[in-house]
């Protein structure tokens, strides 16, 4: 009995140690999305430029689409932008949600850096973003043809993330009926 009791601390220690080891691999700053598998929350957003169409959640049905949340004040967005432009050239449908800023700032930013979006909406109050569970920019949601969220990318989409994760998912969603 005493022998077993004396083994208890070392056994508990091993469990904690393994936990720490596995725990080191995760990034404590990335949060899971609550929306996976659920329909996109409803929103209707004004356009960035006066003469364009805005963005509404119903616009996203019909085909798998990327919903990219961006802002002109966000540094990593600039990093991600060339990838988005390339995807647009490859024919990937992307819509944009301009988060927490004036539409004019978003429009200027797109004029300067190129516009990868089929359509984009301005979310000045940030409420649409909050409904999506956005905590920072950039974030990108993969939405299937029935308007359900299937995946969320926190942080910039790098060419590697696109090739390894999002592109195969988009292909699968296209094949879904």
């Amino acid at each position: 009995m005493r022998r077993l009791l004396a083994l208890l601390p070392v056994a508990a220690f091993v469990i904690v140690l393994v936990g720490f080891m596995v725990g080191l691999r995760r990034d404590p700053s990335i949060l899971p999305s609550m929306l996976i598998g659920k329909p996109l929350p409803a929103f209707t957003l004004a356009p960035l430029r006066a003469n364009e169409a805005g963005l509404a959640s119903v616009d996203l049905a019909g085909q798998p689409v990327l919903l990219n949340v961006f802002a002109s004040w966000c540094g990593p967005c600039k990093e991600e932008h060339p990838t988005l432009l390339r995807l647009k050239a490859e024919g990937v449908p992307i819509v944009g949600l301009d988060w927490k800023e004036d539409a004019a700032d978003g429009a200027r930013w797109l004029d300067a850096n190129g516009d990868p979006y089929l359509r984009a909406g301005n979310d000045r109050t940030g409420r649409a973003g909050i409904d999506l569970g956005v905590s920072g920019v950039p974030e990108t949601f993969v939405v299937d043809r029935r308007g359900r969220v299937r995946y969320r990318q926190v942080g910039a989409i790098t060419p590697q993330i696109w090739a390894e994760t999002i592109e195969p998912l988009m292909a699968r969603l296209k094949a879904e009926s």
Partner: peptide, 19 residues
């Protein structure tokens, strides 16, 4: 973590053996 594994691990192992 490696340092902890060795120091604490060895000490608790010794403890299980000798205590």
């Amino acid at each position: 973590l490696g340092i902890i594994a060795v120091t604490t691990g060895a000490a608790l192992g010794l403890y299980a053996w000798r205590a």
